[in-house]
């Protein structure tokens, strides 16, 4: 069995079979991270270039650990050290990266579509580790795994995604993937952060988060970026937190077995109250653990992919 795709650029490209294979492989690889020797030799001698042209700690570390647990050599190219700032065009960069014969490129970029561009230019598989406001497919896959492990199913679940939908690549990947797997997805947030045309994905939109919370099986909170305040998307963090934050008060209306996800890093007290982020419903740390397993699975599956 192998994936139907050579690159992981958008969750749109993944079939349900691909998702099943990725999750099964990830679940069977979880055990490796629990051993005292957390390493298997399968990707020995493979080189994985982690090209993070935008600051990231969590995702980059997660990929690096995943690569190392499979014995691959993970090499970091961060934007500071790369030539992107020196006027090298992206295609030049791609050709230069390719000349180092990597087996997989993991790319994060502040501009949407850059992983697509690189995938067309290089010969090896490319994994999109987050591009602009477009997608973050590995995050959606790890969210899927996190939900599946607790809820045992996706189809029929009601998943509420709350917050800055407009700027969130996590939201877009999750909307597409969860809908594909049969979940009901609702969006909630201030109208200034709900993008035009999002209704094409078949998701109802609410401006009052209390309207979605009572029926949600899963609540996915999105990170609110402070610079959006200056850009007049909302008046103040205080007001945002009051109307769109998840706290004890709003959680009163939630289902007893609701689970809460957040892609991190959490702005405690802004989109989510600390006691909720650390509370019994929170799966935020499970997401981090599952992230390593999902990325191990993807690296394994893509390294074996035929050209």
């Amino acid at each position: 069995m192998s994936l139907s795709v050579r690159h992981i650029l958008s969750v749109n490209d993944l079939t349900k079979k691909d998702c099943a294979l990725i999750l099964k492989t990830a679940q069977n690889m979880e055990e490796i991270s629990e051993r005292s020797v957390k390493k298997v030799p399968i990707l020995r001698g493979k080189t994985i270039l982690l090209c993070f042209f935008e600051p990231s700690t969590r995702t980059r570390t997660s990929f690096e650990i995943a690569a190392k647990r499979l014995s691959a050599d993970a090499v970091n190219i961060s934007s500071v050290g790369s030539s992107l700032s020196k006027g090298e065009t992206l295609l030049d960069t791609a050709k230069n990266l390719e000349a180092m014969n990597p087996d997989i490129l993991v790319v994060r970029h502040a501009q949407s579509g850059i992983p697509h561009l690189l995938a067309q230019a290089v010969d090896c598989p490319v994994i999109n580790a987050g591009d602009g406001m477009h997608e973050h497919p590995t995050q959606a896959l790890l969210d899927l795994m996190t939900i599946l492990k607790v809820k045992k199913r996706i189809a029929g679940l009601h998943i509420a995604i709350i917050g800055d939908i407009l700027h969130s690549r996590v939201a877009l990947s999750n909307i597409i993937l969860l809908k594909k797997m049969g979940a009901k997805v609702s969006l909630a947030g201030p109208a200034s952060m709900i993008p035009l045309g999002i209704e094409q994905f078949g998701v109802p939109i609410f401006y009052d988060i209390r309207k979605v919370i009572p029926s949600a099986d899963v609540i996915m909170m999105l990170r609110i970026q402070r610079e959006r305040e200056a850009d007049s998307f909302f008046p103040s963090l205080r007001e945002y937190s009051r109307f769109f934050g998840l706290n004890k008060e709003t959680m009163k209306h939630a289902k007893k077995d609701v689970v809460i996800l957040h892609p991190g890093p959490v702005n405690r007290g802004v989109e989510i109250a600390p006691e909720i982020a650390d509370g019994e419903h929170s799966l935020i740390l499970d997401q981090v653990t599952n992230g390593v397993a999902v990325r191990m699975a993807l690296l394994y599956l893509l390294c074996g992919a035929k050209k």
Partner: peptide, 17 residues
Amino acid sequence: LYRDDLSEVAEQPIIHK
């Protein structure tokens, strides 16, 4: 995960637990 023939097999093996 310990095989020495990953690059030689036509179909990638499924990882079991």
